[in-house]
């Protein structure tokens, strides 16, 4: 700010005083605005923290609200099982219906898995997870599809593997909305699931089960999908995409 006055070099004490006063007033005004802005910044930060806490508490509430449910062919450890429970080999499959590699795995191995289960050589334990829910544009496709699978596993366990494969046929790409509820129902019907069972899909009554499947898998240290365990030991992550490799490994394990 210039102190030059148009009225000449001689400083006029009156106007100097006035200018000083103006400057002080301006500074006071600025300090006021600054205070408001500082409060606003604090407010935004505070709101964000409160929002975060509320969100955390709510998700904690959801966590404790999940009560374990176990019935029929459904394992208490949140898996759904196909095949003879007394079979010598247990194959665990951790999967998410939005995961393209899980689809790839199923397309390569579905027939072998079905045959192994039917022959009583292996018990197939599916772990339908939903950690990719964020990858379906808000439709939570992973949960909807996994819920449908668990519903079928509970009501009509013999259709489970076929329905699992049906969900992977023409699998929707990641970050699309996934299959609609109607499309999921259609695929269930195509593999012979009854209308009565299909009608209950949209109730999402097994969504908690799926949440728990996912949590249990995290707790078991599963790091990616698909993860395949044969009798509890991870199967080579490349061989799972090679036709016949899984079957051979299971048969080898059966021989002991």
């Amino acid at each position: 700010m210039s102190n030059k006055k148009p009225s000449g070099q001689q400083p006029d004490p009156a106007s100097r005083r006035q200018q000083l006063r103006l400057e002080q007033e301006r500074a006071a005004k600025e300090a006021k605005v600054r205070r408001i802005i500082s409060f606003a910044a604090l407010g935004v930060l505070g709101l964000a923290v409160i929002g975060g806490i509320v969100w955390a508490v709510m998700s904690m509430g959801a966590l404790t609200a999940n009560k374990p449910t176990a019935a029929g062919s459904v394992n208490a450890t949140y898996t759904v099982v196909a095949g003879d429970p007394k079979a010598p080999v247990v194959v665990d499959i951790y999967q998410d219906y939005m995961c393209p590699y899980c689809g790839e795995f199923d397309r390569v191995n579905a027939a072998d898995l079905e045959a192994l289960a039917t022959a009583g050589q292996a018990q197939i334990r599916l772990h339908p997870m939903n950690f990719l829910d964020g990858a379906s544009q808000g439709t939570k496709y992973s949960t909807r599809a996994a819920n449908a699978l668990v519903t079928v596993a509970k009501a009509e366990p013999d259709k489970m593997l076929a329905f699992n494969t049906a969900l992977y046929t023409d699998q929707p790409a990641e970050n699309t909305t996934g299959l609609s509820d109607a499309q999921i129902a259609e695929r269930a019907k195509a593999v012979g699931v009854s209308d009565a069972t299909i009608a209950t899909f949209t109730q999402l009554s097994n969504a908690d089960f799926v949440n728990n499947t996912t949590k249990a898998a995290f707790a078991d240290g599963i790091e990616s999908t698909p993860t395949i365990l044969i009798n509890g030991t991870a199967f080579n992550s490349k061989a799972i995409y090679t036709a016949g490799a899984l079957r051979q490994a299971v048969e080898a394990a059966a021989k002991g």
Binding site: D96, M98, C99, P100, Y101, C102, F131, L132, G134, A135, E174, N175, A217, F218, I222, E223, S224, T225, P226, T227, S237, K238, Y241
Partner: peptide
């Protein structure tokens, strides 16, 4: 590890190793 990308990694919430 050429296989590292052949799955959906949970910890990175990656859409599948992308």
């Amino acid at each position: 590890d050429p296989n590292a990308g052949l799955g959906c990694n949970i910890n990175q919430v990656i859409s599948c190793g992308a």
